[in-house]
Amino acid sequence: MNLKLSHIDKSYGDSKTKRVIFKDMSATLVAGKISVIIGKSGVGKSSLLNLISGIDLPDKGTIHIGDRCITDFDDSERTIFRRRRIGFIYQFFNLIPVLSVFENITLVAELDNTPKDVFLPRAMALLETVGLADRKNDFPDTLSGGEQQRVAIVRSLANDPDIILADEPTGNLDSETGLAVLEMITDLVKIHNKTLIMVSHSPEAMGFADHVYAVKNQSLVPQTSGLDVLK
């Protein structure tokens, strides 16, 4: 399902300290593709992901995911939508430290009261795909950074969402591990036919992208060469 942002305004702060992030921003991100978002630090890339996922609401404008207008939802509806339709991968993994690897992966399904016979096999299969089946009962603080990010990737896919949002997924990893993670994310996304929207500074990420967009001048601008924006 396509993602359509229409006339989005978003700013932070009060009247004295107001910072405009987006001004009348409109864009359509194609379903089933890998879109990479680039831009300078502080320009609003993470804010864009927050808006898409319903974590945050725009001051003006609408966001359609498929035929659903998530800006019309209340907090509860947005949460449920996010739970079922969107998976999130963070720079700092953000695993729940008191849950084991497997419990982290099944967290969203359990929050959604999905029957165990539906989500357990799927979660186990995904875990095997990333090579961590033998660590399923371990806790996050015993895993390396790369392993934690692999768990986070699986978590994002466990509830079979339509869209994966990744916010600097390799930002906290060394280049070799980061590349491996990128490959893993993009492979899984393609295999499961998901839409991936990834914020990244990494040039390697650009190589996996079907589309590149830059956040600049308070808008989202399609790019032909991502490196130009970073200059």
Partner: peptide, 16 residues
Amino acid sequence: KKELGILRACGAKSDQ
């Protein structure tokens, strides 16, 4: 705070 934010981002409702 952070952990609660993660939970909410993962899809936990306020009441959960």
